[in-house]
Amino acid sequence: MSNHLVVIPAFNEEANVASVVADARASLPGFDVLVIDDGSGDDTAAVARHAGARVLRLPVNSGYGVALQSGYKYAVRQGYAIVAQMDADGQHRAEFMPQLLALVQDGSADIVIGSRFLDQDGHYQPSRARKVGMSVFSAMASRIMRQHVSDPTSGYQVMRHDVARFFCSDVYPADYPDADILILLHRSGFRVAEVAVQMRMPTGKSMHSGHKSIYYVYKMFLSILVTMLRPAVEKRA
């Protein structure tokens, strides 16, 4: 058993999960691969197992954040030192993970986020509405954290085990972790860093569409507000 784990949350991804797992296994030989099957109705779990991943199946669909948190809980209980995460829809490519890992391993950051926008080459073009939302919240996060945050919604991350342990508590959101969780990390004394990565454009559904995008904007404002109103929690409390 390795002491590095890559967590891949998946919901109805039987079409993509095999190639994502194969990519992770090929690019990250030192990592154990854990797919979180978030109550999928299709064969995601069987396909992932066949591709060589360990599978943690949630009995009911519980949301992206809950699936990720299950992975952190697994990692903490099994004693992994490093936890990486990437999405199962094929947007993320595992080849950039070593660059993120290097920053965690040399001790310059506790958590490293892979950013689509940091290199500013425009390879990734979100919809206009989403772009506005993203830029407002990354600007707020950058201001509060006094460091440049370009892609707070990225699910492409590498973290130390103590960050994973911190995420195991009630602080972690059930739906989509975003700028609010980065602000919380900063206020709790963790060091956050970003590395430019390339991502493929999403093929299917977007998580912020229609009425959900209005709720998303509302939720982020509220969440950032209450995060700022709460007393800062110290890490290793």
């Binding site: 854990l34 979180i36 779990a45 197992r49 066949h50 591709a51 060589g52 991943a53 360990r54 599978v55 943690l56 199946r57 949630l58 009995p59 009911v60 519980s62 809950v66 948190q69 299950s70 809980k73 697994y74 209980r77 009630d170 059930a174």
Partner: peptide, 21 residues
């Protein structure tokens, strides 16, 4: 109740993690 349910769902998942084929 939702928070408790979520914790239980996670525990159920963690109780039998399936090994690769």
């Amino acid at each position: 109740l939702e928070r408790r349910l979520t914790a239980l769902v996670q525990e159920v998942g963690l109780m039998n993690v399936e090994e690769p084929d």
